[in-house]
């Protein structure tokens, strides 16, 4: 099958479509013109950078460089998680990064070895996009689970202490909150799998089909990637919660107040 390239001129044609939201915003006084311009510009700059960067990375295709790039992605994901949930970066850095490594990297290696059957497990063309998909999803999961967990346990502080005074061991007192936040974090992934193909065609599959793959091949990849995403998300959020717990509760089983950024004063 033929690949239809998009010329830079056609890309400009595509951006012309943005006249419509501008018009709509103007007409309905939505005030989103400035936001749209900023967002679109950011998208262009970021993707242009990634495009150039990935081209260099793919041409080079050096395993060490590829792994180093994964490390950069990991650090970015960790930083985003912790700053998004309003917790103290230093206290939770190691457990969070650890959860991303175990949850995503192990599943990725398995995936490349047994599913795609790659000769070079660290081939940039597979390593980086697949890791990106795993990481993006487990990042969202980690943000939901960690923020809802610390939120709930702070809000229910007296109830938590009451559980301890009613004979709960530390893990027994914590478990109800951990369970609830993991459930919350995994629900979107589960819902995603059950509606896929009906409500929306996933981006990866669409991309493969447009690029010339047969729909059957695209679907096989999509199934594999969905399972991979689900497994890596489950692993990351479970490890994320239980690893951060180790460093955010004191020996008395009490939540350390200094894990929260705002209470440092």
């Amino acid at each position: 099958m033929e690949i239809y390239d998009i010329s830079y001129l056609s890309l400009v044609a595509c951006f012309l479509l943005l006249v419509i939201p501008v018009f709509v915003s103007q007409y309905l006084k939505l005030g989103i013109i400035q936001d749209t311009v900023v967002s679109v510009s950011r998208m262009v700059v970021q993707l242009a950078f990634v495009g150039v960067f990935l081209t260099v990375l793919f041409d080079l295709n050096n395993s060490i460089v590829n792994l180093l790039w994964l490390l950069v992605m990991l650090i970015m994901a960790t930083h985003t998680t912790i700053s998004d949930v309003g917790l103290d970066l230093k206290k939770l850095l190691v457990p969070t990064i650890f959860s991303f490594i175990i949850g995503n990297f192990l599943v990725l290696l398995y995936f490349n070895m047994f599913v795609v059957n790659l000769e070079n497990l660290f081939d940039a063309r597979f390593l980086i996009p697949i890791f990106g998909m795993f990481l993006g999803n487990s990042l969202r999961g980690n943000i939901i689970s960690i923020s809802s967990f610390y939120d709930a346990i702070k809000r229910n502080e007296n109830r938590y202490l009451y559980s301890l005074s009613l004979g709960a061991k530390k893990h027994e007192a914590i478990l109800p909150y951990a369970r609830k936040s993991l459930d919350l974090a995994l629900k979107p992934s589960i819902a995603n799998m059950s509606t896929i193909g009906i409500v929306a065609l996933p981006g990866m599959m669409t991309g493969q089909i447009i690029a010339g793959s047969s729909p059957i091949l695209a679907i096989k990849y999509q199934m594999a990637i969905m399972v991979g995403i689900y497994v890596s998300t489950v692993m990351t959020v479970a490890i994320g919660i239980f690893m951060t717990i180790r460093s955010s509760f004191d020996e008395y089983g009490i939540l350390k107040q200094d894990v929260f950024k705002s209470t440092n004063a």
Binding site: E157, A168, P176
Partner: peptide, 23 residues
């Protein structure tokens, strides 16, 4: 303590939870 700060769930669920602790 003077107040039992529980917002969610039924009384029976809480009792079940407490009696599920190994102790």
């Amino acid at each position: 303590s003077q107040d039992l700060d529980i917002y969610e769930g039924s009384v029976d669920e809480f009792i079940e939870e407490v009696f599920s602790y190994s102790f």
